[in-house]
Design a protein around this nucleic acid. Structure first.
Lengths: 172, 172
DNA sequence: CACAATTGAATTGTGTGCAATCATTTTCGT
DNA sequence: ACGAAAATGATTGCACACAATTCAATTGTG
């Protein structure tokens, strides 16, 4: 009946779930000595930095949707932990190249088991994961896409909604 | 193939969606002059504080899963915005009762349209909302419930997983 | 009743997020 | 080649989150 009912709002369910997820990572990542956002940065470095060219701060920001105001101090802490190094690019000295150190690369092995541990804790049906993932991604896309300034007559540029089209136990 | 693939991880999808949601609220709540977490506090006050007894900080923490370290300064800001008042309880002076002011109560009217505006921006199938909500709630419950200390032989105390049991277009 | 344990908030310290601004460097139009 | 515009990070300031500590008030127990 009440549109402002806290427990009926998707925003709060998302907010709660996200914080619960971050909290659940805490003890697992404590063994590595890093925080959850720091872990996300390492994921990108492990994924993209294998060619030892390093990853720019801009690229990290694109992957994680974080700006330099968040990444600069975070990378500074990762650097003081000896997980990464930062150097200005030789070709374009505006860029800063971030690389995992040997210690940072070694942490990847110890992190391999983390997603599975979290997966157990979520206790969700693994078959429903792809659908949940796609729903969340569609949600994120839609929210980022449409500021709908003030009064535009026709914003629906993204009519997609994943749930309708996909089967309940959809696989990829 | 890679368990550490950023884009395959539920945690990152949640983290992104939650931040996108909060960002999407920003311009709507700017008209009220408050932030998203402040809005959440006002939701609880509008919902539970109608009997003008006020709501304790503890109760706010239970509803929002936030501790006094977050709520105390947040409430202080809401107080300086004249949205709420804070008074020690007469019966138990450890408790602090938070009440919406007339201005805070008036803001409820202006906030009524906010959930609908967000709903448009999500562009999700309204019929799939109950299932998504329930999945997120189950996820939150499971993550909060099972710390699984270190090596316990039998932690599965919460075998529930909503998706299996519910139909695709489940309603409540 | 004395007094230890508990409870409820506030405070402190660290680490994000994000807007706004700044400095440096590169690019591009002329 | 030159100057404006754009690109790239860093810095600053504010507001969460959350762990740990502190402090006052209450409750439980002998």
């Amino acid at each position: 009946m009440n549109a402002l009912d806290l427990d009926r709002q998707l925003c709060f369910a998302l907010y709660s779930a996200s914080r619960a997820m971050t909290a659940s990572y805490k003890d697992l990542l404590a063994e590595l000595g890093i925080t959850y956002p720091q872990y996300l940065v390492m994921l990108v470095l492990w994924e993209e930095g294998s060619n030892d060219e390093g990853v720019t701060v801009k690229r990290l920001g694109e992957r994680l949707q974080l700006d330099s105001g968040t990444l600069s101090p975070l990378l500074s802490r990762l650097e003081s932990l000896s997980f990464v190094t930062r150097h200005r690019s030789a070709e374009d000295s505006r860029r800063v190249l971030v690389r995992a150190t040997a210690e940072g690369a070694a942490a990847k092995e110890r992190a391999e088991c983390v997603p599975a541990r979290i997966g157990e804790r979520t206790n969700l049906d693994p078959a429903s994961m792809p659908e949940l993932l796609e729903t969340l991604r569609a949600l994120t896309r839609n929210l980022r896409a449409e500021p709908a300034p003030v009064e535009s007559p026709d914003p629906p540029a993204a009519p997609l909604n994943s749930h309708r089209a996909s089967a309940l136990t959809a696989r990829h």
